[in-house]
């Protein structure tokens, strides 16, 4: 019961934050509402018992990626968004498209949900334990893990090359 109430509360905060991201005109307001979405998603992960994922959600997403966004918005001194012809085109074509997409996804989930059961609030003993994730990451998924480190290296070099001023 408590689990359901907490899920509904944080789920509503998530959706409200995501809608606010769309409604706000200034990028910094959008960025902050995305931080709210990410923080409440971290709490939902805690409800699912995935405490390690919740922690890295806060550290990596809210603490590193979004700080980078806010930093760039401040650096470029970005102003409020302006309306152009493109936005009207997107409105005409995009909104019906998204409604169809959401409808399809929703219909598939609701029609398939009869076969799916529920998820429990799992204690911290077994599910989200850092040891179990580490074992999986360094044994079963070792190759993908190494490849992501190469990806990160390439991304760093790309960012440095792009960020350099051309003389």
């Amino acid at each position: 019961m408590v689990h359901q109430v907490l899920f509904i509360v944080f789920g509503l905060i998530c959706v409200a934050g995501a809608i606010n991201l769309l409604v706000q005109r200034h990028p910094i307001s959008s960025a902050l509402s995305l931080v709210v979405v990410m923080a409440s998603l971290a709490l939902i992960y805690l409800l699912l018992g995935a405490e390690f994922v919740a922690a890295i959600q806060v550290i990596v997403y809210a603490g590193a990626i979004m700080v980078l966004f806010v930093f760039v918005i401040m650096l470029l001194n970005a102003g409020a968004e302006e309306r152009t012809r493109g936005s009207r085109m997107a409105l005409i074509v995009g909104v019906p498209g998204v409604i169809i997409l959401a409808g399809t996804v929703g219909w598939m989930l609701v029609s398939g949900s009869g076969r799916l059961g529920g998820v429990n609030l799992v204690g911290p003993s077994s599910f989200g334990e850092t040891h179990a994730i580490a074992r999986l990451l360094f044994k079963e998924f070792l190759l993908p893990f190494e490849i992501t480190s190469v990806l990160i290296l390439i991304a760093i070099m790309g960012a440095v090359v792009l960020g350099k001023r051309e003389n």
Binding site: F52, A55, I56, V58, I59, A62, G63, A64, V67
Partner: peptide, 11 residues
């Protein structure tokens, strides 16, 4: 990890 996360939100 909680301390590290909270510190990074402090920025």
């Amino acid at each position: 990890l909680i301390i590290l996360g909270v510190t990074s939100i402090g920025v």
